[in-house]
Amino acid sequence: MEYFAGLDVSMEETRVCILDGDGTVIREVKVPSTPSDIEAALAGAPACRRVVFETGRMAPMLHHGLTERGVPVVCIESRQASQALKSLATHKTDRNDARGLAHLARTGFFKPVHVKSLPAHAIRSLIIARKKLVGQRVMLENQIRGLAVVFGVRLPRALSSAFIAQALQASEGIDGLSAAMRGLVTARMAVLSAVTSIDADIKKLTRASSACRLLMTIPGVGHLTALAFTAAVDDPERFRRSRDLGAYLGLVPRRYQSGEVDYTGSISKCGDRRMRTLLYEAANVMLTRYKRPLKLKDWALAIAKRSTLRKARIALARRLAIIMHAMLRHGTEFKPA
């Protein structure tokens, strides 16, 4: 007889439930959320054909750790699992969730998801850290500008050399404002230094990656976009068609159909929001700053003429994602013609 297991994972503990092929509970236990403890809990019962758990913050560590130990683990989409678990149990408890996931493993009523490699997650962490620091820099600059406006001083662009000089000059002789300005300026300099350090690391990583160098042959695609795309895709072979990248990144129209109702709305915005933003920015650079003849740009401008420039950017971002995936898959450079 075949056996199946479900894991309800939390930060500290994991509830393990093992069922046989008829749905009878064989074993239920609560163990620490580490691959070794979960493997030991599964070893206390007959070997399982399939072990299922949901996506979450612990998913990469557990998936790769259990896979290395030979456990046939499958990670499934949490949104889909949530709808199925609601129909299986009236009360939401860790025990019921583990049982529900075990039943999903037994019936096969789930959609497995790809768990990115740990190096890909490390790159994503670097990109997320940069985004947070840039946001902090902008917040500090806006605060400095707002304090100066109260005293009738309109500061220049924040990245100009005169920004800090005029901000400190405006606060001279005013005790409270001077201390506030110095503190904000010091914090801004520290954040700028951290952003510069991360940018240097990003450039070093892109120079060392042949895939990133290929992607950077596309006009408008820089170090950050290339590195983020390789981390988002992780394994190009997991996509059967390059066209699937549009739906994966949420750059296709959302559709709702029920009976006589058939509605097509704006883009779905599923998947990696940061990657979608970077592709949109790359499309905007290609449309507004790239001056050489380019068929891809002409195609997007034709869309802008019969619709809007915003829709043209989104369409071009989707097309760029398709092209970039094809380049990674076949190892070819971008050909403008």
Rank of each mutant, 00 (worst) to 15 (best):
C270W: 15
E237R: 12
I218N: 07
D234W: 02
G250W: 13
V252F: 04
F229C: 08
T230Q: 01
Y248E: 03
D235F: 14
T230L: 06
F239E: 00
D262S: 15
Y290F: 11
D244E: 15
M275F: 11
R254T: 10
Y263S: 14
K269E: 04
K269F: 13
Y290Q: 05
L227G: 04
D272R: 03
G246L: 06
D262F: 08
S242F: 00
R292P: 05
L224H: 04
L279S: 02
V221M: 06
P293L: 04
G265L: 04
V261T: 15
D244V: 11
S266K: 15
D235L: 09
E281A: 05
K291V: 09
L278D: 03
V252A: 07
I267N: 08
Y280N: 02
Y248N: 00
D272M: 07
Y263A: 14
A226P: 03
T264V: 14
D262G: 12
V233A: 01
D235C: 09
T288L: 05
Y248K: 05
I267M: 10
F229W: 04
C270R: 12
G222P: 06
Y248A: 08
S268H: 09
N284I: 09
T277Y: 11
K269T: 06
A232N: 04
S258Y: 14
G222T: 13
A232D: 04
A283M: 04
L214M: 14
T264L: 15
N284D: 14
R273G: 11
R243H: 04
Y263F: 15
L245W: 06
K269D: 07
G222L: 09
T225V: 13
M286I: 01
G259Q: 09
R254V: 07
L227E: 10
A282Y: 04
F229M: 08
D235T: 12
S258D: 15
